[in-house]
Amino acid sequence: MATRELTYVEALNEALREEMRRDDSVIVFGEEVAAAGGVYKVTKDLLKEFGPKRVLDTPISEIAIVGAAIGAALNGLRPVAEIMFFDFVGIAFDQLVTHASKMRFMSGGQVKLPLVIRTQYSLGRSYGSQHTQFLAASLLQAPGLKIVAPATPYDAKGLLKSSIRDDDPVLFVESGALYVNRSYYGYRGPVPEEEYLIPLGKADVKRVGDDVTIVAVSRTVSEAMAAANQLEEKGVKAEVVDLRTIMPMDYETIINSVKKTNRLVVAEDSVKTGGISAEVASHVCEYAFEYLEAPIVRLNSPPMPAPQASELEKKYMVSAEKIVNAVTKLVK
C-alpha cells in the first residue's frame, strides 16, 4: 500500500475533498471556511473545487450554523459545518444537545441526522481561557450524539470520512495544537494513498506494552507517546490506548488493556472534575476492579481556566513530563 506523510491539517482537508467528490450531498459551511479556506486551512481550496453552492461562508451565527446543519441533514444532505473554536459550541449547545441529539429518538425513529460539526480546541497554543476548552465531557450527557477526536493524520482522515458517512450527528473535535506544533507525534504522519475508513467507536492501541495502560485522546496522545518513549528508556513498557471516539466509547479495548497491565493512567485535556477521565476510571472500577494493582491515576487540566502565557500553559496542561512522573510512581 503506497503511503506518504501528511500533516493533520492536510489529512483532514483530503478527507473533506474525497467525501465531497464522492457524494454531492456533502456540503461544507461555517465562518471563514470558503474564501479563506478556514482559519487553519482545513477547508483550503474546497471553494475552488466545489463552488459556492457547496462551500459557504456564513454569518457569525453558531446557533444558526448548527441549526442549519440539522435542517439540511433532515432533508437528506450530509452537512459538515464548522464551529471555529470548541468554546463556541457552547453557544449552540441547545441546538446540539437538546435538538440534534434527541431528534431521532423524539421523532419515534422517523428521522436521521447525518451531520458533522467540526470544531477544534487550541490548548497548547497559548490562546488563553476562551479558546482552549476541551468540552467533550459535558457532551457525554447528550445521548444520540457521537463525539470523535482524532490524534494523528491517519486517524483524522479515516475518522472524518466515516463521520461524514455516519447516519447520526457527530461532533468532530480536532486539536489546534496538532495543526501547528511540529514536535507533536500527531502533527505529521503516514497516510495511505488508497482510500480507507476507520470505524467510529473503536479505540486504537497506539503502542503496545505490559506495565501500564495510558488512555489518552486527541492532543494528549502525542504527550503519551512521548512519555512512553521516555519510560522505555527507564525500562517501563507503557501501552498507549487512544480513545479516538469518545462517544460511544470503546470500553472493551480499555478493559482488555487494563486486564493485561493492571495499572491505569488516564491523560486527557478536560479539567479534572467530571472529565472524560472520570468516565474511563469509573468504568474500569465497575468492570475490572479486581485486575487493578494500584489506584487509577487521572491526569487532566486542573479545574480552573487555562492561563495564556505559554510557560504557564505548559505547566497547566497534561504533558509528557507529568505522565512520566505519574507512571514512575505507579510502577515503583
Partner: peptide, 30 residues
C-alpha cells in the same frame, strides 16, 4: 409526522427556527 411533511414540533422555544431555515436552504440546493 414526516409522512405528512410535518417535522415534529419542539418544546424549547424557537429551537426549530434555525433547522427550518437549513431545511429550506437544502431544498434550494436540491
Amino acid at each position: 409526522d414526516i409522512k405528512y411533511r410535518i417535522v415534529p414540533a419542539p418544546i424549547p422555544v424557537a429551537v426549530h427556527i434555525p433547522s427550518a431555515v437549513g431545511f429550506a436552504l437544502s431544498l434550494k440546493y436540491k
